[in-house]
Structure formats: structure tokens, C-alpha cells
Computed example of a mutant assay.
Amino acid sequence: MRSDVLIAARRGHAPHIDCRGAIAVRRTGVDTVHLVSSAATPLGGDGIRVRVVVEPGARLRVRSVAATLVLPGARIAESQSVWELEVAGALDLDPEPTIVAASSRHLTQTRLTMAVDADLRLRERVQIGRSGEREGFWSGTMHADVDGTPLLRHRVELGLTCLTADAIAAPLAYAGELHYPRTDITGTGTTLHLARGGCLTTWQGDRL
């Protein structure tokens, strides 16, 4: 199944929402929306594309009502999600965790373009497996630019089939949080200050 979501925020207006497929969006506040699954997704073979546009002077908070459960399909184990973020105002994107269950493989791409005076908080959390499961795989790639100049190129892989996997001590959980332009962030994990401004905090372990 293919799911496409567009959320566009303009100053002084309610967010514009356009959804097709298994993902719906509900406005839950003046500048807040929640993602809702209207059908089981992603399954193996599914693709999800979420485009978020925040115009100058606008503010938008994006949440989800529940964790995203990734499951293998009958014939295909791999699914994909793509986030395309265009931020000239203020965006706070913090969905519930992604749980990569059973033998599923999920690939996430985040493409972020920001204006110099944008304000961003982007949080991502992933867990390989439900209770007793360890065979799933997740790959997350982020390309972030500010005013056409690279801010961050970042990739993380989790699961026993990734190249750096250690069957005894391989991390099965990841949490990452990107802020721009703030750098005064404290939290669990390692914080990297970025040359163009902002910072990235990352953590890996066994369970979220």
C-alpha cells in the first residue's frame, strides 16, 4: 500500500492537510496535528511519504496517537518511509516510537531543508522487536540543509543483520533528537554540536 501525507502550515491559518492511503491526520490544537493509522501499515512492500511544509512565521507541532508497528508482508519483508520537511518557520516533530517487529526490515529517509531563521526540534525513536524478538532491521538516513548548505548527513542501522552487528551486545534501540538553532540541550545520550548551528543528541541501547 502507498500512503501519502501533506501537512502545510501558514501563519494565521489552520494547517492544510491532504492524505491518501493508510495514514490520516487530525488537527488537535491551534498549531498541532496528530498522525493516525486508518489501516495496518507499514507492512512489507508498503511505502509511506510524509511531506511537511512550514512557511515563514508559522508554527507546527506534529505528533502521532500511537507507536508505529512495522510488520513483514506475506512475501516481502521490507517497507519504507520518507519524510520531506521544508521549514521556514517553527516545527516540532515528535512521533511515537517505531517498533520493527518479527523479521521486518524498515528503511527511513528524512530530507530536511531549512531557512536560516527556522526553528526545529525533530525526535526519532526506534525499537527492534517486541518482547522476545531480535531479528528485525532498521536503517535511518538524514540529510539536513540550511539555506542550501549541508547541516548534517547522518545514518544509523539497527538489527542483527547490519554490518556492525554483535549478537551478544548489539544495540536494538535508538533515540535521536535534532535541534536548530538551539545548542543548550541536555538529555540522555551524546550531544554533537553542528558547525552551522544546532545540535544532534543520539542514544543507543537494548530497550527504549
Score class of each variant (00 low, 15 high):
114 M>G: 02
26 R>S: 11
5 V>W: 01
128 I>Y: 08
176 G>H: 06
111 R>T: 11
196 R>I: 00
167 A>D: 05
148 G>N: 02
64 S>E: 03
96 E>T: 08
44 G>W: 04
64 S>A: 12
86 E>H: 14
77 A>D: 10
59 R>V: 10
4 D>T: 15
27 R>C: 05
165 A>F: 01
177 E>M: 02
25 V>K: 09
149 T>I: 07
62 V>R: 05
134 R>T: 07
145 D>F: 12
134 R>G: 00
92 D>I: 06
143 H>I: 02
164 T>G: 10
81 S>R: 13
144 A>E: 08
13 H>Q: 14
158 L>Y: 12
101 A>N: 01
189 G>A: 00
182 R>Y: 13
68 T>W: 04
207 R>V: 07
108 T>G: 07
46 D>M: 01
77 A>Q: 07
41 T>A: 13
201 T>N: 06
145 D>R: 12
169 A>N: 15
118 A>G: 09
21 G>N: 01
33 V>Y: 06
122 L>P: 03
8 A>W: 14
179 H>W: 12
192 L>R: 09
168 I>M: 12
26 R>G: 06
84 E>V: 15
117 D>N: 11
150 P>E: 04
51 R>N: 11
111 R>I: 11
200 L>C: 03
15 P>G: 10
24 A>L: 06
195 A>S: 08
83 W>C: 10
60 L>K: 11
124 E>P: 10
127 Q>M: 03
55 E>H: 15
121 R>M: 13
83 W>V: 12
54 V>F: 13
21 G>P: 02
30 V>G: 14
188 T>F: 00
86 E>T: 15
155 R>S: 15
26 R>E: 13
177 E>N: 03
27 R>I: 08
83 W>H: 14
39 A>D: 11
95 P>T: 05
150 P>Q: 05
179 H>S: 08
99 I>N: 03
21 G>Y: 00
174 Y>D: 03
8 A>R: 15
123 R>I: 09
117 D>V: 01
175 A>C: 08
180 Y>T: 06
93 L>F: 14
206 D>N: 11
9 A>D: 15
19 C>M: 09
61 R>F: 01
130 R>V: 05
118 A>Y: 08
183 T>E: 15
19 C>L: 08
101 A>Q: 06
18 D>V: 12
65 V>L: 14
132 G>A: 14
166 D>C: 09
141 T>W: 10
94 D>M: 11
113 T>Y: 07
90 A>V: 09
154 H>Q: 13
6 L>Q: 12
32 T>H: 04
24 A>R: 14
138 W>R: 01
40 A>Y: 05
48 I>Q: 14
97 P>M: 04
194 L>D: 03
172 L>A: 05
165 A>G: 02
115 A>I: 02
39 A>G: 10
186 T>V: 15
165 A>D: 00
71 L>C: 05
152 L>T: 06
154 H>C: 10
169 A>W: 14
47 G>A: 13
21 G>W: 00
169 A>H: 15
91 L>D: 07
194 L>Y: 04
96 E>V: 03
182 R>P: 13
108 T>I: 08
58 A>F: 03
204 Q>G: 02
70 V>W: 01
133 E>F: 02
202 T>D: 09
143 H>P: 00
93 L>S: 05
48 I>W: 12
91 L>G: 08
206 D>E: 14
6 L>A: 10
185 I>E: 13
133 E>A: 00
44 G>E: 04
195 A>T: 09
16 H>I: 11
